[in-house]
Design a protein around this nucleic acid. Structure first.
Lengths: 128, 128
DNA sequence: CATGGCGTTTACGTAAAAGTCAAATATCCT
DNA sequence: AGGATATTTGACTTTTACGTAAACGCCATG
């Protein structure tokens, strides 16, 4: 496990621009270390970036991603905070479950469409 | 099954604005009928809207949604077109599968976070 | 030593997806 | 018919998530 990654290494790995990574830092999603002015990304930063990218692919906004990232941090020490945190987690999970339903339905409709295409090909006597 | 829905009925049902529905029409995603200038949404339009909303929740852009909607239409009659269509369907399905992986991973991380919270509560002697 | 490559900040630009507002019609109800 | 209510079109604005350009620092290599 490497100690540090440079900004361009991460851009290459994740297929995003340096602008994007700096933007995520401005937005408080990541806090890479510094040597002088130069950013040094630790493995934990890299993992965070991976989580951000995942959230983005799932259609979450930066603010929603920020909320999700908060959750991954150390659990709070106080009982009230802990209960609140659990509530927030449940909320997010509900959103994810909704997305999963959307996903399954969409996949199913695509399956149907493909089957219709294949049937049509068979009708036309094309070997599949 | 109703014959027609008014624009405001659909906005209420789906929690979107009239502007949004007109925008989708401008973008060629839906083609509601008209009586005079007034839009009349048929059940098929309503179903399309449902599919659009689903796509939006999954983080697809309007253009991607447009492509997906094309797929739901009648399969083409010509062999080349059919094979092309099947390729496009497979592409979309790959994107959806990627999203599903992202989804499972994110849900799992949330599960872990929740478990950590619960454990912490147990440590503190709180009855869950 | 200057050239290239990678890094930085600051500032302005932009595309997508609507939101908002106004003014003009349409439709519905009595 | 007439007033209330609903719709339409069009123009302008906003938000999000970056893109892009300018201007400069650091350092290794020919």
């Amino acid at each position: 496990m490497r100690d540090y990654y440079s900004i361009t290494e991460l851009t290459r790995e994740f297929g995003i621009s340096t602008r994007t990574l700096r933007f995520y830092e401005d937005e408080g999603l990541i806090h890479p270390a510094r040597r002088g002015r130069t950013r040094l990304f630790r493995p934990s930063d890299r993992h965070l970036v991976r989580q951000i990218i995942r959230g983005r692919r799932l259609g979450f906004s930066i603010n929603e991603i920020r909320e999700i990232i908060q959750i991954y941090k150390e659990p709070p020490g106080e009982v009230g905070q802990l209960k609140l945190m659990i509530e927030r987690i449940d909320e997010k999970r509900d959103m994810l479950r909704q997305k999963r339903r959307d996903l399954e339905e969409t996949i199913e409709e695509l399956d149907n469409a493909e089957e219709a295409c294949v049937e049509r090909l068979v009708e036309l006597g094309v070997s599949t």
